[in-house]
Design a protein around this nucleic acid. Structure first.
Lengths: 185, 185
DNA sequence: TTTTGAGTAGACAAGTCTGTATATTTTTAT
DNA sequence: ATAAAAATATACAGACTTGTCTACTCAAAA
């Protein structure tokens, strides 16, 4: 017996609004209006707005990795997979019209007032870091940097590309980051 | 005739609250309470909350560069100045308890609904990029990367260190970024 | 067929938000 | 000293906030 379609609709609408308008700027009433459900239903599935935020981040986490694995699965060479990460980032920037990383955005907005949400954000970034490290270990690279340092470079360049993409409203930073990493492979 | 002390107090309190709690989570009433001024005075100096945000970003911009120039002025070697940028970042992270970059935070919160504020943010990051470029041009480095690419690397690593510092609540990322740049100098 | 659970619609509480207005006092400048 | 400007305290409008609650409908299961 599958999960309620109502719950899915709430989560999808909340995800879109939290991401595009921000968590604080999105009211419960807007979520129920656009999801076209009753307020009681929302509070039946999510005890509070904060729980809805955590659920949104959880879903975003799972979807991000699922999408990424689909995107990178045709690529076999680990070096090309690493570069593919930047193309994947680029794609998402174009599709989202440079709205930025969901997790960075959330963390900037909530500060330390939402510990469960912050944990979700940390877990996502940790997993990304570990994934990059596993690719780097598989890849033959110039060893100008150690595996760990190259991993950090890739991770930090990706993070920098995210925020810079938002501010410049352009894919330039991500393209430059990719070119930089190409020098190391 | 110096600028009204009231205006200064408003701006300083707003700066602190906007930065620590976020713009959306800070109400005008909290600002006037903590600044201990009347609501009418606030709206006399700043026609709207949005204008107060822009003024805050302007002030933060000027102060950031002023502080940085003080911090780096005893250093003469351009390579050490570049590394000093990471120490400066580290200092600010420790002092602010890893609250993150003021401009990234603001840009994450306001989206494209505040064009004047976004312009301020862009101007800050542009100026930072130009400053890094001028240091790189003065510095003798290994030329593993071109001047422009090394500039982008430094800039993006600094940006990545900011967001990662917030999420991990630790100075590790900034220290690693510095070590990476050391390899290029 | 009856009971149970999910969903709906909407009122409501209690408070917050930005911004305006008014009347009064304090400060500054001439 | 007087007139103008700046700051004060405070009330208010109108909209919005999260979350609770009631009364009702409908569908599926027992």
């Amino acid at each position: 017996m599958r999960e309620s379609a109502v719950k899915e609709r709430i989560l999808d609408v909340a995800a879109r609004l939290f991401y595009q308008q921000g968590y604080n700027s999105t009211g419960i009433n807007q979520v129920i209006d656009e999801a076209d459900i009753a307020k009681g239903s929302l509070y039946n599935h999510f005890p509070s707005k904060s729980d809805l935020l955590v659920a949104y981040l959880q879903q975003a986490h799972e979807r991000w990795f699922a999408d990424m694995e689909v995107y990178l699965s045709p690529i076999k060479d680990p070096r090309k997979k690493i570069l593919g990460l930047f193309d994947f980032r680029l794609n998402r920037q174009l599709v989202s019209n440079f709205s930025g990383c969901q997790f960075i955005k959330a963390s900037a907005e909530i500060g330390r007032g939402e510990p469960k949400a912050m944990d979700q954000i940390k877990m996502f970034k940790d997993r990304l870091n570990n994934y990059i490290l596993s690719l780097v270990k598989q890849a033959e690279h110039k060893k100008f940097l150690t595996d760990e340092m190259l991993t950090d470079t890739i991770f930090l360049l990706l993070e920098g590309s995210s925020t810079t993409g938002v501010i410049q409203h352009s894919p330039e930073a991500t393209r430059k980051a990719k070119k930089i990493i190409e020098q190391f492979l």
